[in-house]
Design a protein around this nucleic acid. Structure first.
Length: 831
RNA sequence: GCCGGGAUGGCGGAACUGGUAGACGCGCCAGACUCAAAAUCUGGUAAUGGCGACAUUGUGAGAGUUCGAUUCUCUCUCCCGGCACCA
């Protein structure tokens, strides 16, 4: 074998070997346990960044590890190919989005191969291929037939100069990014998927996701936001057109504390009131220049205007003013709220600004007298018991919830309701580079879905892209068609789907990506659900929730079995540099290409897995890479040395591994074997259960250090060294697959390392007869003692109290107690 | 603003169930090899005091629970992710 580690030639050769042997081709085999490992597919932006490398290396490590455990592994990859950046590139570089995207895919594919990622390339998919999106169009029509699709008006960011809809990302400080014009909210008809029909199940099934990070489940729970409350009707005073205002509240117990109502600026009554109120009209107009983003509204300085109208509190007949306020969302509830400044922080802030009364009606638990709590700085938002609430005084918040609800229901002015924060999913995008929505607008028949036999509706790829508006709207050859129902002249939808549509089902299509008769065939029942899904924490809500929704909807259409698509989830942290998410705009990207050229893919993979726990954000540093490279070089020369010894020694010195357990081993031999098998135990757990590749690598480095210090003099030394070295190489192979492939071959193995089994723990090697315990006095470490295993408490106590350093610290003091934590620690408490 | 997460040596990080804080790596220091340098190998490396044994302090800040807290509870500061048209 070569004396020098030369990653460039090795990696190329090994990659060639995998290619020639179709090493990663996945074939269904009902006899074998399957393992479907998937990293979230990338958007083909053109350049690979370190975050990608991290994501795909984690997936590759797990796929290779489970393969060595004997499972039938599916590890596919594809491209989330539709999206806004392609349109931007089209404008910037005068290249069609399709061409730009395909070039990027080619480029990134090459880089993925250079990274040594073990994908089944036969299953590669790109979402911009008609063979892919035809099934999305087909599914959309099925969902339409099932009543899960509807059309309604919804607000978008409208650029009045460019006459185009803008993404939130394209609105900067309230202005269009290209035109710099003040953005307006505009309502246009759009398609929606009824995800709220699954709200309950999406919430409840989170409990089944025991192998998901708890924080992701919590975020989804909050996002779905089940709210148990009461819908209350306030009658308006002297108003004929709109005689009630509906509000939703989760705190009916605070109903006596209502001092005003607040309407969203888009609320029908707001608009009506503005008709002969120019100040209000101007205010509503002002609110319209807001970007369509919740964060935008929530961080606003609270503003509002009194409409002059009044409403009646149904519980006590009190007349309260009706305001229009910018902090009330039209999308949530009924677009109107009852304001209780004393017990809601946002209402409190608003009331402070406009000098509206703040009336306490809830008193903290455990307080008996009716003393007002401090409401000068903030609202009291917790539950308690009622005061100043007439007949309800003295009730707890929970009791009042029911009592108030009952009374309102009796008076026919309210009813219990469950509200969801989750809103239906708007899937229309007024953009070119996306899946065409398979709908036809007929002047006679209205909206009609495209016939199944006419699918796919193909997106024309050869277009002239100006950047203002979608080219589809200027292409009669695209939109002019006939109505499937009456055959008369009709027009196609020119909007395309939200790109989250494609990513909500691609994981299932990997089971049968070339199937052109049906969306899925029987192979989905073999491969799904995904056993391990890996992706950025930034996808914790939207992508994962949409995918869960799709899966349930597809289940109800009989397309898949099971309730949840992803059994186990690993959310990787961001790769940061100088404390920021890497992005082109910040100019802080690290190019993996130059690192790969300098050190090779194995070093880059090793470093990324070593630098941090996969779920934590990773602070990039160039210097650490050197250390990973050094480790591989040491492993290389250690193996070369071992091979040399092998050649000089008698060839018949092979012993079966049981021989290692014999009493004949020396202390140092036993110690090294024990460390080796402890390491196998730890690394197996780190890979399989904990997914902490960083600590697995640290353990392998420690074992390597021990091996380096172990002198080889006898045949037994040599055999033990070989056992340890082979264990290190095998356990490192999922992370550094090229070098370990070469080293395994150099150690005279015929089988390729990726066909080998994961090393097994020899429990005999773990046996020891002493252990080290820590001795504390009053919780401070004062000594370490080596004790025979299974020592009884009395013996331990005696040993500890006789210890010189312990004696010094307990001298002249009274021993209060001695705490013994078996196998770990003894704490002497004195005073 | 709301929801979720994070903060540990000069740096990246480890400490899994409340039990030796700083594993492993980087960097730095010293030594070996070398005419010299690079590479490589060996040893040291939280701070303070001490020749040393050892002692004191120390995990963003402040409080609390406990024999014992990086770990649990509360309050706060700063940073990161998401907030429905970036993917």
């Amino acid at each position: 074998m070569e004396q020098q580690y030369n990653p460039k030639t090795i990696e190329h050769e090994v990659q060639q070997y995998w290619e020639n042997h179709h090493s990663f081709k996945a074939v269904e085999d009902p006899q074998q346990e399957k393992y479907y490992c998937l990293s979230m597919f990338p958007y083909p932006s053109g350049n690979l960044h370190v975050g990608h490398v991290r994501n795909y290396t984690i997936g590759d490590v797990l796929a290779r590890f489970h393969r060595m455990l004997g499972k039938n592994v599916l590890h596919p990859i594809g491209w989330d190919a539709f999206g806004l950046p392609a349109e931007n590139a089209a404008i910037q570089h005068q290249v069609a989005p399709a061409k730009w995207t395909y070039q990027n895919i080619q480029h990134m594919k090459k880089q993925f191969k250079q990274l040594g990622l073990g994908y089944d390339w036969d299953r590669e998919i790109a979402t911009c291929h008609p063979e892919y999106y035809r099934w999305e169009q087909w599914l959309f029509i099925k969902l339409y037939e099932k009543g899960l699709v509807y059309k309604k008006n919804a607000v978008v960011n409208w650029d009045p100069v460019d006459q185009t809809v803008l993404a939130n990302e394209q609105v900067i400080d309230g202005r269009g990014w290209r035109s710099d014009a003040k953005v307006e909210r505009r309502e246009i008809p759009q398609w929606f998927l009824k995800i709220t029909a699954y709200a309950e199940e999406l919430l409840n099934d989170l409990d089944k996701l025991t192998e998901w990070p708890e924080q992701v489940c919590t975020m989804q729970r909050n996002w779905i936001g089940r709210a148990n409350g009461i819908c209350i009707q306030f009658d308006t005073v002297d108003l004929k057109t709109i005689n009630t205002i509906e509000v939703f509240t989760t705190r009916p117990d605070t109903l006596h504390g209502v001092t005003y109502l607040a309407l969203a600026p888009e609320h029908p009554l707001s608009l009506q009131a503005a008709e002969n109120n120019s100040r209000l009209k101007a205010f509503i107009q002002d609110c319209r220049s807001l970007k369509v983003a919740e964060a935008e509204i929530a961080t606003l300085e609270k503003q509002g205007i009194d409409t002059g109208l009044k409403a009646v509190n149904p519980i006590n007949g009190e007349i309260v003013p009706i305001w229009v306020a910018n902090y009330v969302l039209m999308e949530y509830g009924s677009g109107a709220i009852m304001a209780v400044p004393a017990h809601d922080q946002r209402d409190f802030e608003f009331a402070k600004i406009y000098n509206l009364p703040i009336r306490q009606v809830i008193q903290p638990q455990n307080t008996t007298k009716e003393a007002p709590c401090d409401l000068t700085k903030a609202a009291f938002t917790e539950k308690g018991h009622l005061i100043h609430s007439g007949q309800f005084n003295g009730l707890s918040s929970e009791q009042a919830f029911k009592a108030v609800g009952d009374l309102l229901q009796e008076k026919n002015q309210g009813k219990p309701e469950i509200h969801w924060r989750l809103r239906d999913w708007g899937v229309s995008r007024q953009r070119y580079w996306g899946t065409p929505i398979p709908m036809i607008n007929c002047p006679k028949c209205g909206t009609v879905p495209v016939s199944e036999k006419d699918l796919p509706v193909i997106l024309p790829e050869d277009v002239h892209f100006e950047g203002v508006g979608s080219p589809l709207k200027k292409m009669p050859e695209f939109y002019e068609t006939n109505c499937p129902s009456c055959s008369g002249k009709a027009q196609r939808e020119t909007d395309t789907f939200d790109t989250f549509m494609e990513s909500s089902w691609y994981f299932a299509r990997f089971a049968c990506p070339r199937q052109n008769q049906t969306m899925f065939d029987n192979s989905v029942n073999y491969w799904l659900p995904v056993d391990q899904y890996i992706g950025g924490i930034e996808h914790a809500i939207l992508h994962l929730l949409y995918s869960r929704f799709f899966y349930k909807a597809m289940r109800d259409l009989g397309l898949v079995k099971n309730d949840e698509p992803f059994k186990r989830l690993l959310t990787q942290g961001m790769v940061l540099k100088d404390g920021f998410k890497m992005s082109k705009s910040k100019g802080n990207t690290v190019d993996p290409k130059s690192l790969m050229e300098q050190y090779g893919a194995d070093t880059l993979r090793l470093f990324l897995m070593f630098a941090a726990h996969p779920e934590q954000s990773l602070e990039w540093s160039d210097s650490g890479v050197e250390g990973a490279f050094r480790f591989l070089k040491r492993l290389w020369s250690k193996t070369a040395e071992q091979v040399k010894i092998k050649k000089t020694r008698n060839s018949n010195i092979s012993l079966s591994s049981t021989a290692f357990s014999s009493e004949a081993l020396s202390e140092s031999q036993k110690t090294l074997r024990r460390l080796c098998h402890e390491t196998i135990e730890k690394v197996t757990d780190d890979y399989g259960r904990r997914h902490t590749f960083n600590t697995a690598i640290a353990a392998l480095m420690e074992l390597m250090n021990a091996l380096t210090r172990f002198p080889i003099q006898t045949d037994m030394d040599y055999l033990i060294a070989e056992e340890v070295l082979e264990a290190i190489i095998l356990m490192l192979s999922p992370i550094a697959p090229h070098i370990t492939h070469a080293l395994w071959h150099a150690l005279d193995h015929q089988k390729a390392i990726l066909e080998e089994q994961w090393p097994k723990v020899d429990t005999f090697a773990l046996i020891t007869d002493t252990l080290e315990m820590v001795v504390q006095v009053n919780g401070k470490v004062r000594a370490q003692i080596v004790v025979p295993i299974h020592s009884d408490d009395e013996t331990l106590k005696k040993m500890v109290l006789n210890h010189e350093n312990v004696q010094r610290h307990i001298q002249g003091k009274i021993i209060r107690k001695v705490i013994i934590v078996p196998t770990k620690l003894i704490n002497v408490v004195v005073s």
